[in-house]
């Protein structure tokens, strides 16, 4: 963002246009993020932290518009379902002698191949 107000003839200035939206869209966006991250195994504290971080503009904007209480309610709704279970991922056994079996690839080896 520029420090100063733009010059009147600056072609880079974005012109704001009102996009028709649904009043429920902020709540739906919050619910979508809450559902998705609850499905991924995030807990209440982690999901609320996502909403509170201003760097995640979508979630943070929903928090700004809906408020802490409403967002917490939406998150608890999601966790009420998706928090009931957790997913377990089991990797297939590593084949003896494979690259994965040998441990992490060191960067020197990777660069050597590329050269």
């Amino acid at each position: 963002m520029p420090y100063d107000e733009p010059e009147p003839d600056d072609p880079q200035v974005l012109v704001g246009v009102t996009v028709p939206g649904d009043a429920e869209s902020a709540r739906e966006m919050a619910a979508a993020f809450a559902d998705e991250f609850a499905r991924m195994g995030f807990g209440r504290r982690q999901i609320l932290a996502l909403f509170r971080s201003p760097r995640y503009a979508g979630a943070h904007d929903a928090l700004a518009r809906l408020g802490d209480v409403e967002v917490a309610r939406v998150v608890d709704e999601s966790l009420g379902v998706w928090g009931q279970v957790r997913l377990a991922v089991e990797d297939a056994p590593t084949a003896p002698g494979s690259a994965a079996d040998a441990g992490p690839v060191d960067s020197g080896r990777f660069l050597k191949v590329l050269k």
């Binding site: 009931q84 957790r86 997913l87 377990a88 089991e90 990797d91 297939a92």
Partner: peptide, 10 residues
């Protein structure tokens, strides 16, 4: 097989 995912009890 690469991996498998199951649901577990909490």
């Amino acid at each position: 097989e690469l991996f498998r995912t199951t649901v577990e009890e909490p």
